[in-house]
Each structure stands twice: as structure tokens, then as C-alpha cells.
Design a protein around this nucleic acid. Structure first.
Lengths: 203, 203
DNA sequence: TTCGATACTGAAACTTGTTCTAGGTTAGCG
DNA sequence: CGCTAACCTAGAACAAGTTTCAGTATCGAA
């Protein structure tokens, strides 16, 4: 279930790889302060030491840039989470625990979270492939936490999708100050019950 | 459970009410064609026959405008839905039916849906009150569909929130072409099972 | 009816995402 | 080494959201 971010088509030279990394770093840096609005393309370019045109060659829009930033952060998160797998009894508990852990990680950088999530939901069709990658990464994290014996069945996949929807949308309501952390926790736990509903029992 | 859109603080004169209505109409009109990008503030102002500054006095940003447009459309929808209540046996069925009906309504105006939903998820804290109103309208629609005998308990409210999250997020993935209508239907039906899970049984 | 406050208009200006252009640099290859 | 294509840079230019301002119209109260 390893979901590596695709190294994509043309292999980059070392300097190009470094540029790309500098850009993503600058993006995350700026986002950590003022959130979405603070990630201004001219500033990112300057902070990364590249020309504006170059920035646009690497990331065709601000949304692309921030979604790529999210891919980057998610990969870190996934790696971190794997080191200490959740300890719950049931799959539902493990998933809820994992998501709340991820949530606390985002809490530490709320502005960064804001920038990434806003970009993700604002993305139009032209960013679909990249958004899809993020979605696959999230799915991988959840399935990892479920720690199923075999491959998931379609019903479980649907439950996972619903959990993703909830996770995503709950994050937004928290970021915009319309829900408390406690409420997010309750919603996550509520939706995770779906897992035990679909899994072992006969239908 | 009637959730009227608050008439807000200062009562408007007749001409002001008419202006406001013209603006919302122009907004919906433009959105129905090109979606979010086609709702350009200068064009809205021109189509509504008001100056740009006036448009901004009524709606302090494009996002505010589109969220207000959504409030408007939701109210229509709610009225329409009430005329023919869903017929399902269980609360879960009725909610799923209602949401799919709403979904089909949006399908008829995908560009408008795109504009409204993008605005909703892109909204930052400054739009929280308005977004909250939309959320309450949605909650009211779902609770109506559930047709509970008494007031909902906290567990049911959490289930409703999760359903809203799913509805909202599923809509986004459909609009951005990353999920089919069939998939949305499955996800809605999946999440609606939560209702029967929380309701009648003893815990 | 008249007055003062508030709202509206038209137009310019400002901001930030995005595109374009002309010229210099780099990488790979014979 | 020298060539060529692809890449990079600096900077201007353009697009659309938002703000501002001076002047005009409207409204509600005296």
C-alpha cells in the first residue's frame, strides 16, 4: 500500500531538483505565517531565488504549488505515523486515533494547514491529477491504520471515502472557526463507526 | 425547524431590496454559464445596473456574493423539497433520497453549483456567519427529511454533521470530475446508514 | 419643504495571479 | 571545444478582485 508520489515524466537534474525543493520550502515557510494569502507568487519566487517565470514553469499556478506542498507534507506525516502505529483494538479506533494524531499535527501549523486545505478545495479540474494524488495518499494512510488482513472490499472502500470526506470537511469547518476541536473529534469518531459496520459482520 | 435567512440588521428600502435581488439574479445568471470564474464583479455590477462600489456595499467580496447566492438557492430548494417529502421507510432512506434529489437539482446547473460550492469552501473566517447560515439551512433540510418524532439527540446531530460533511465533500469531488455520480450515490447511502445506527436502538 | 446624513455613481488606482518577451545560461552531444 | 535546444532571468504587461474618491441622488426627520 505504499503510495509514493510519482516522480513524474522527465527526470530532473540535480540543480532542478534543488530548485523545486527550495520553492516548496519557501511555499511552506510563507504559508506557515499568513496562510493562503501570504503565499504570494512573487514572494515565493524571491524567497526561493528563482525568477517568477521559472516558478510558473515548475508549478503552473498557485493552487498547483500549494497542492504540491500538501503532497510533500502528507508524505512526511505518513512516514511519521508509520513509526508509531495506532494501538486501538478495532479498526475504527485505530483510524480515529490516526486521524486525530494527524489533526494535532496540523494544529501546530494552522496557517499552513489553512493554505493547503483551501488550495485543495479550491482546485478546479486542471489540478485534478494532483488532487487525486493527495486523495490516494490519504486513503493509504487510513488503510494503513485499519491494518486489514486482506485487501479491502468495495464496501470498506466506500466507508474510507466517506471518512475522507468527513476528515476533509471537518478540517475546513475547524479552520474557518466554525467548529471546535472537540466537535471535530466527535465527528471523526462518529464516522469511524462506519468501519466496524462494514467489516466483519455478515450482511 | 424553519430556518429563515435572517433579514439582518437594518431593514432595506424597497429600491434597496430590488437592487439586492437584481444583484443576486445577475450573479446566479453569470454563474450558470461559466461557473466561478465567469462571475466577475464588474460584470455582475453592470448586469444588475449598479455601480461597482454599490455591489461591494451589498456584498463585501465575491465570496460573500456567491455564498449569499447559495443561501438564496438553498431556500428555493428547501421549499421545493417540502412540497414532496421523501417516501422512504427509514430515516436513512429518506435522507439519502432527499440528498440525491438535491444532487440532481444541482446536476441541472453544474456551473452554478461549481461557483457556489467553490465559494463556500474557499470562504475564510470573514465569511463565517454567512457560511454558518448555509450550514444551518442544510441541517434543516436533513432534519426535515429525517422526520423525527422528537428533537434530535446529540448523537443524531453528530451524524447529521457527518452527513453534511460527506455531502459537501462528495459534491466537490464530483464537480472537479474526480468522482462519478454513481460513486456519490454510494457514498451518500453509506453515510446515511449512520442515522439508523444512532437512532432507535438502545446503547 | 428643507436639511443633513446616508447611499449611489463613475472612474481611477492599487494588488496580486498570470502571461509574455528578449536576452543570457546550462546541459548534453558530436 | 563548439553547437543547439531547452532552461532561466529580469522585467513589463495584462486580468480581475478590491479600494478610494469626488460628486450626485435619495431618504427620513424636523
Amino acid at each position: 500500500m505504499t503510495a509514493e508520489v510519482k516522480p513524474s515524466s522527465p527526470p530532473l537534474t540535480e540543480r532542478q531538483e534543488a530548485r523545486r525543493r527550495r520553492i516548496l520550502h519557501a511555499s511552506a515557510q510563507l504559508a506557515s505565517r499568513g496562510g493562503f494569502d501570504a503565499v504570494q507568487m512573487r514572494e515565493v519566487a524571491e524567497a526561493a531565488g528563482v525568477a517568477l517565470g521559472t516558478l510558473y514553469r515548475y508549478f503552473p499556478s498557485k493552487v498547483h504549488l500549494l497542492v504540491a506542498t500538501m503532497q510533500d507534507q502528507l508524505q512526511h506525516l505518513h512516514t511519521t505515523l508509520r513509526k508509531r502505529p495506532p494501538a486501538g483494538e478495532s479498526a475504527a479506533e485505530r483510524v480515529a486515533e490516526t486521524l486525530m494524531r494527524a489533526f494535532r499535527a496540523l494544529q501546530r501549523e494552522p496557517q499552513l494547514a489553512d493554505a493547503m486545505v483551501r488550495a485543495l478545495t479550491f482546485a478546479d479540474r486542471s489540478v485534478s491529477p494532483e488532487v487525486d494524488t493527495v486523495s490516494r495518499q490519504t486513503t493509504a494512510i487510513i488503510l494503513d491504520a485499519m491494518d486489514l488482513p486482506g485487501p479491502p472490499d468495495p464496501e470498506q472502500l466506500s466507508a474510507v471515502r466517506v471518512i475522507e470526506h468527513t476528515w476533509h470537511s471537518a478540517l475546513i469547518t475547524w479552520l474557518s472557526g466554525r467548529a471546535s476541536i472537540a466537535q471535530v473529534k466527535i465527528d471523526i469518531e462518529t464516522v469511524c463507526r462506519l468501519i466496524d459496520l462494514t467489516g466483519p459482520e455478515p450482511r
